[in-house]
């Protein structure tokens, strides 16, 4: 199941904070798409996944970042 988190117009670290808050609502294996147009999101969403042990799936289109909950 994929959910979408709209963080367009938000400045970092807000999209990453929203992602962290949304994560407990996902089942392990689910993915979430974060929409964020702050330039820092391109660095910070993958970095968050690495620090928190979640899987970063990439950016399929500009300003969208897919993350899978793996734990």
């Amino acid at each position: 199941m994929t959910t979408e988190l709209n963080c367009l117009g938000q400045r970092c670290p807000l999209p990453v904070i929203a992602l962290a808050k949304a994560l407990p609502g996902l089942a392990v294996g689910d993915t979430i798409r974060v929409l964020a147009d702050d330039p820092a999101a391109a660095a910070d969403i993958p970095a968050w996944c690495r620090m928190r042990g979640q899987e970063y799936l990439g950016s399929p289109v500009p300003s969208a970042y897919d993350v899978r909950r793996v734990q």
């Binding site: 400045r11 970092c12 990453v16 820092a40 660095a43 910070d44 970095a47 968050w48």
Partner: peptide, 24 residues
């Protein structure tokens, strides 16, 4: 090196190139 402290709103190109967290 966080973007919110730069005039361009871009995060540090050094932190981004390293794959490091750029905020905070």
């Amino acid at each position: 090196g966080s973007s919110c402290t730069s005039s361009t709103l871009q995060p540090s190109h050094v932190l981004a190139a390293m794959g490091a967290l750029t905020h905070g």
